[in-house]
Nucleic acid binder design. Structure first.
Lengths: 172, 172
DNA sequence: ACCTGAACACCGTTCAAGT
DNA sequence: ACCTGAACACCGTTCAAGT
């Protein structure tokens, strides 16, 4: 049932992922969902866990940039995935998989959290922009999004690479 | 009218800031709002601009950490302010005040954008956690939020300080 | 144990019609 | 120019009642 919810999220996006629509997909009354989940928020927390489970387990020696990209890619793998994870991360529901992995590759726990917040913010904006593009609600239609988006991500990673202690790959 | 919307946002939060409620506050029918704004999104963009206008103009010589803290404080000044700014930033509506100021203090534009995304992500999480706290929807009730929150913010700023080129204040 | 039916208190948005 | 009235197509959640 969380599988179908994740599937529906990917197809219609978070704004259209309603309890009523999910119920219709399951050919069940909306109220039936409340036997399985106490609230929509709890349902979304289960979906967030599924999304985070896609983060690859790094073998020892993997550098920070690769780990960070793995987390970002997991968030981007499903439509509006970053926003779902963000809202449940805020409520401290859901798995702490991403933070634990980041902390294992960065020493400091505050820095690991900060890096996760950057990845989360970045991925959320990327996905919201994808939606804006699809409905044509953007100011400059002449501008392509995904072009310099990755450059911004890499600039953020470059910044956090300096606190990574263990290995460095910073020129300039 | 955007003033009242900002006021209402601060009082009830984004989830309860509805067009109908705003209309009631103005003692007007909901449909009346659509003469002034084409959609709720457009109304929120106007609110976001008001929020961003609170960012202090830095005099030349102000270091990056101070500028970043000024932006964060502007986002935190009104309830759910960060989320409102985030959603309009994604749609490329609203002012680019924050990014412009950051770019003037950091050289690189990609790094400035990355830093803004970190601040936005961080501030959004902080505010969502405040709400979670207020309704008691958090997992560990024994844990105080705002304590190590600022430490995470400072860890992020420390990372970006290294790309700031102009001036540095990094020990460790 | 799991689901239905019906209700409660809401949403954003449109559009003819009024002043 | 600015607003009302009424409607359309939705929401999340609760709760007695059914099987």
């Amino acid at each position: 049932m969380t599988d179908l919810a994740l599937d529906l999220l990917d197809r219609v996006g978070l704004p259209d992922l309603s309890m009523r629509r999910l119920a219709a997909e399951l050919e069940v009354q909306p109220s039936a969902l409340y036997w399985h989940f106490a609230s929509k928020q709890e349902l979304l927390a289960a979906v967030a866990d599924r999304i985070l489970s896609r983060i690859p387990q790094p073998n020892p020696g993997t550098d920070m940039a690769t780990v960070a990209a793995g987390i970002r890619d997991a968030l981007l793998a499903y439509r509006d995935g970053a926003e779902v994870v963000m809202s449940t991360y805020a409520l401290r529901l859901g798995a702490r998989r991403a933070q634990d992995i980041l902390q294992s590759v960065i020493g400091d726990s505050a820095s690991a959290d900060a890096l996760f917040e950057f990845i989360l913010g970045h991925a959320t904006l990327v996905q919201q922009r994808m939606y804006a593009q699809s409905v044509g609600a953007t100011t400059d239609a002449a501008h392509d999004p995904t072009a310099d988006l990755d450059e911004v991500f890499r600039a953020g990673i470059r910044a956090f690479a300096t606190v990574g202690a263990t290995r460095d790959s910073l020129g300039s």
